[in-house]
Amino acid sequence: MHDVAAAAGVSQATVSLVLNSASGSRFSEETRKRVRDAVNRLGYRTNAHAKVLREGVAGMIGFIGDSVASSPFAGAIIEGAQQRAWEDGLLLLTVNTGGDKELETASLDTMLSYKVAGVVYGAMYHRMLEVPEALAGIPSVVLNSQDRAGRLPSVAPDEVRGGYVATRRLLEAGHSRVGLINIETLESGLPGAVGRYEGYTRALEEAGLALNPAVIRFGAGNEEDGYRYAMELMTAAKPPTAIFCANDRTAWGAYQAASELRLSIPGDVSIVGFDNQVTLAPHLRPGLTTLELPFVAMGRRAVDLILQGAEPDGRVELMECPLIERNSVTHPKEMP
């Protein structure tokens, strides 16, 4: 800093005030420019350790995820968190644990030793999580999941509303025999499976339609189950005219079943998915109408809460899943 001051022809105190954008300091733009030019020319960097000692926190927010390196959704969720952190001049320190608890513990210890401003504890699919005790002493937010103990604030997708909107889209197109291929059993307790099923049943009830177990299947959220259960539904004596597939991979399997049966989508059967997986949904033929998981918005909101102090109040903020219209829905051939 002494060298920067000498090169810019100002005092060391002026350099400090300019670099820290101190409130109340009044310098001409020419002075600020001289300081910045000297910083760039000399390659000056602030002392991060001194900053931590002075302010108590580093200019970083930690992000720990179970599969941030391999999930197709990871880029969007990290992008949202990183954008929001950077807007306040903070960097996101990201660690992919791959589900390794020892690595998670070591990573968390390192982040806490660096005095990060807070920690986002993320999962790549919505579930109830056992949150490390170490997070109790620092502003922390559970992202895309929920704290099973109900202590930390959580940001997650509104699964119930999403299932309702998906089913409602098919009902409004004129379908009354709407099938469902879910991503797990209700007994699993998986929030995505339970919530999307609840939204489906709520939409039917609101439309005055009885729940029909004959057109409901519980798969595992993969292409194989989508194919198998769509084949069962579409070859039944009274097949559904539309199917809500509770994720896009399931819908992909349903597309394959329809193709094998020489059925047109959406002419013979309309399909709605869930996820808006960008490597899949837009590239199916026809493009898949689906619900988008709001990963960017959720990532931003998690960092927002940390910047606000993230009180351990156990709140759960559910974020809307927008409907992405493509070409897989139309009215049924014959009105039921």
Rank of each mutant, 00 (worst) to 15 (best):
D3L: 15
V4Y: 04
A5D: 11
V10N: 04
L19S: 07
L19G: 05
F27C: 04
S28T: 15
R34S: 05
R36C: 01
A38S: 15
R45F: 11
A48E: 12
E55G: 03
F63T: 11
P72I: 09
A74H: 06
Q82S: 15
Q83H: 14
R84A: 06
E87K: 14
E87D: 12
L90G: 01
L90Y: 07
G98Q: 00
E102P: 03
D109F: 00
M111V: 04
Y114L: 13
A117L: 10
A134F: 01
P139W: 04
D147V: 03
R148F: 09
L152T: 01
S154G: 02
V165A: 08
V165N: 08
V165M: 13
Y197C: 01
R202A: 14
A203E: 09
E206K: 09
E206P: 05
P213M: 03
Y229W: 08
A230T: 02
K238C: 11
A246I: 06
N247Q: 11
T250Q: 02
W252E: 14
Q256L: 15
S264C: 07
D268Q: 09
G273H: 09
F274C: 12
A281K: 05
G287A: 05
R300L: 07
V303F: 13
G309V: 02
E320G: 03
C321P: 02
R326W: 04
T330W: 11
K333S: 10
